[in-house]
Amino acid sequence: MSQGWDLLFQYHGRPSGIFAADEYLAGLQAIRGTELCDVVETMYSGSYLYQVIGDIKFADRVERIAYNALPATLTGTMWSRQYLQQQNQVAAMNMNPDPFPTDGAYSNVFGLEPNYPCCTVNHPQGWPKFVSNAFVTTPDGASLVHVYLGPFSMSTTLTNGNAVAVSVDTMYPFSDILTTTITADAAFTYYIRIPGWVSGGTIAVNGGTEEAVSPSNGLQSVQVGAGTTTIVLNIPADITLENRPEGSVAVHRGPLHYAFDISRNQTVLAQNSQQPLAVDLQYLATDTWQYAIDTSSLKFNSNPPSSGTLPSPIFDAGLPPLTITAVACPIEWDLAGSNFAASPPESPTCTGSPTNITLWPFGATKLRIGEFPTFNSTE
């Protein structure tokens, strides 16, 4: 199973965490689709596999899917969803022709039940099952493992009647800091997953000195005493690049994949007669999206809300407090058919002067470029 998981993502994986499957497994091309049902089922399967096998790669990928691929295929309000999402998605419309070999032309419209209704009834399991698997006990029932990071709370009773409650105060994945308060009747070992993308993480217990995290098998152990314990975890990350087909790259920092959010207009194609919030939406680009980026220019920017509270919904245009800026230049990048992007051009030539563009968390984008050609702005 572990080898099959690795092969699946090696040959079909997406920077958003999921794999491409528009009915068929679809390879690495950025315009092929991923079904929303694939997203939520893979999250659940990955949670189960982590609990059975114990390899941190399963939990890391599930968290990446939850904070990237899942929100990217939903409107912020979650009243409309796609059947298929694309890594590079320059329109969401009734596409004729479409790039999907068996799915219909309506597949990437945001709506109540585009193409098939299965994702409408299936997608609401995604985040609830993610949250409900965020904490697990060790096999002996004596210790608690915090698997998925986020603003979660839970209570349980460990072996020997040890009543434990945990509350995590954080804006993660839009912050690097998690403050966890634990109350327990008796001492026990608490484990926290340290994701593979963390660089220079620190931990402080009960106001003590910050110490470098030192996970074993991806888990940081903390000895928790009876009463109340406070843990402050700081898990920063570097900007990293993922090589993609045609010499293109994808940009990551921590759990989030970053993409160029293409400005768009919106047309209501249909409205449900019983629930007017459920609408079918067409999105068309209203600005240039044909850019190459200079990867040496990437800069991370954090603008936390002064209120200390994230907007809700958070996964929509311009709302997340984290961005990455890049020096980019316009290039020739054709459409394939009339409404989806061709593969990123290799070694493109700039057709205009360099400019600055902003990359946003992938899950907040509905039209996007997530895999970029590159250029060198100093040449």
Rank of each mutant, 00 (worst) to 15 (best):
P330Q: 05
A326T: 02
D334A: 15
A342G: 12
G337H: 09
I324W: 11
A336Q: 15
A326Y: 02
T355N: 06
T349Y: 05
I324D: 03
T325M: 09
T323S: 14
L322H: 08
P330A: 04
E346Y: 14
A326R: 05
N356H: 08
A336I: 01
T351H: 01
I324E: 05
A326V: 05
W333D: 00
N339I: 08
L335H: 03
C350S: 09
T325E: 11
S338L: 12
P320F: 09
A341D: 00
F340V: 00
P354Y: 00
D334T: 14
W333I: 03
A341E: 02
P345T: 10
F340G: 06
P345H: 09
T349K: 12
G352H: 09
P330L: 10
C350D: 04
P345Y: 07
S338M: 07
T351M: 06
S343N: 15
L322K: 07
P330V: 08
A341F: 00
G352C: 05
N356V: 12
P345V: 05
L335I: 14
L335P: 10
S347G: 02
S353P: 01
A341Q: 03
C329G: 11
V327I: 15
F340E: 04
T349A: 15
W333M: 02
I324C: 02
P320K: 03
E332Y: 11
T351F: 03
T355L: 12
P345G: 02
I324K: 07
S343I: 00
I331Y: 02
P321R: 04
T323K: 05
E346V: 12
S338H: 07
A336N: 15
G352K: 04
T355K: 12
A341N: 01
N339M: 13
T349D: 13
A342L: 02
P344A: 03
